[in-house]
Design a protein around this nucleic acid. Structure first.
Lengths: 158, 158
DNA sequence: CTCGTATGCGTGCATATACACGCATATACC
DNA sequence: GGTATATGCGTGTATATGCACGCATACGAG
């Protein structure tokens, strides 16, 4: 029982599996490139967004990242412990404001060239058009995920 | 500097972030569709491959799935506890053979129509061409992940 | 047979992801 | 003031992912 599958035959029929595979592969490429900076691409993403956003609430940041809020809560925890992220005052007591610390700003600055290197490598692999399509892909798939639900009243059926 | 991001502006500049976002989104779509079957798309993927492969070693299955072996070890654990996967004899004592149980076969059969539903939904969203490109994408990105080393360090010499 | 290498396996650790809950607080309505 | 609703937050639980390690076993060289 040999797996004799060539590249052209290795494409799964499942779009989800294909996309997840691509995601794992590209994550490895970026993490690899970012390795000297000590950041994972997921962490770099959070810090870079925070860098642009300034002081924001956890929920707001989660929306920016199109990431589940509770996921971000945990991702932030590590970044706070590393000293990259610190609390920020917020007008609304319900909100927890966060922002980049000086250390965090330095970390982003240090990592950025490595990130750019990965970006360029990807552009070589996929071409400018392929890169452009990736953005469209995410948007197309997010378009109706969880917003297309009907008939979910809060009144229990019993 | 106002942030007034609409859908078309919501595309990240980072290919990795875009792809990961797309991956999360499509995973949600498939998991959602598969929900009545009680399987996650990741689990369905393992079981479906096992269904085609028959009895295989953990490492061989991991290669089929382009998945880290140790990740698969843990994913299999849940499937074994659920009774979907069982041990299979192997000629080589080092290998641990696994195969679908009857229950597992039934689970795949039950889930398949839901999976197909998701497949079709995606094809509607992305078009046949878009779907085709996803397979190519994974392969393009896996192509040189970890087998191509470039000594092109950006600065950081001190 | 013995040693070194290759292969297969599982675990410890760290991180990512998200759903279900419950808690706290702002706000609208009365 | 008091109640219902909306919003923000963190945790418990479950799963996914991969790297570093160490253990067991096959296999070729001597």
């Amino acid at each position: 029982m040999k797996e004799d599958r060539r590249a052209s035959d290795r494409a799964s029929v499942c779009s989800c599996v294909n996309l997840r595979r691509a995601s794992r592969a590209i994550t490895r490429i970026y993490d690899d490139a970012l390795q000297p900076s000590g950041l994972k691409v997921t962490q770099y993403s959070v810090l870079a967004n925070l860098s642009r956003a300034g002081a924001v609430s956890v929920s707001a940041l989660a929306r920016m990242l199109t990431l589940d809020r509770t996921t971000l809560v945990r991702n932030l925890k590590a970044l706070e412990q590393a000293g990259f992220v610190e609390g920020a005052p917020s007008p609304d007591p319900r909100e927890r404001g966060v922002s980049l610390s000086e250390t965090g700003r330095a970390a982003v600055a240090k990592a950025q060239p490595y990130w750019l290197q990965a970006q360029q490598l990807i552009e070589e692999k996929l071409g400018a058009e392929g890169v452009r399509q990736l953005g469209a892909l995410a948007i197309a798939l997010e378009g109706s995920a969880g917003d297309d639900e009907a008939g979910d009243e809060p009144g229990e059926t019993g």
